[in-house]
Amino acid sequence: MVERELERAKNGDPEAFSGIVRSHQHRVYNLALRMLRDPDEAKDATQDIFIKLHSRLKNFRHSSRLSTWVYRVATNHLLDQLRRAKRERTRRINRPWKEVTHLRNDPRSEDPAVVVNQEEVRQIVGEAVDELPDLYRTVIVLHYQQGLSYREIAEILGVSPRTVGTRIHRAKARLRSRLDPVWRGGGIDGGK
């Protein structure tokens, strides 16, 4: 079914291509949003990624699954965009982690009775993920948000599954050091 749709899309059938867009755009947009941290940029990047996929569809050789190829093109595009933005020094990297700083300085956070609501937890963790280096953020998002296995991520990034594991491990170590003060302060129940 997917194969047939893909062949039709490769032959220029707009209906078939729209099927591919519809089945992948949600995931690609969310990946872009988490990587670029800006809804407008994520929207533009998603469009650019699909335009790129559209123009390269004829070159797709079935050596990997379609979804893997879509993720690979998307990831490369987003990492390139981040690299370019860094070069131009227009990105707001090293943005202060204001929510966590705020919680740490908040006298209430010393009080174990204070429970940070779920939305706040999401925001705090999201900010911590945003601050990870691009390569670490990529694997974290692909694994935890997109639900991909080490092997799938490895195929997308062109590295070994072991490298993926190492990157996830290092990323989590950074996250733990960032988040520890928050849940040690009583904000989040860390089961400790």
Partner: peptide
């Protein structure tokens, strides 16, 4: 892991995104 799985959820994509992509392609 649990925190990350629950925090990094998918958000709904902007309305009209698919149509915009198809229009451009």
């Amino acid at each position: 892991d649990d925190v990350l799985f629950s925090a990094l959820t998918m958000e709904s994509s902007p309305s009209g995104l698919t149509e915009e992509i198809l229009r451009r392609s």
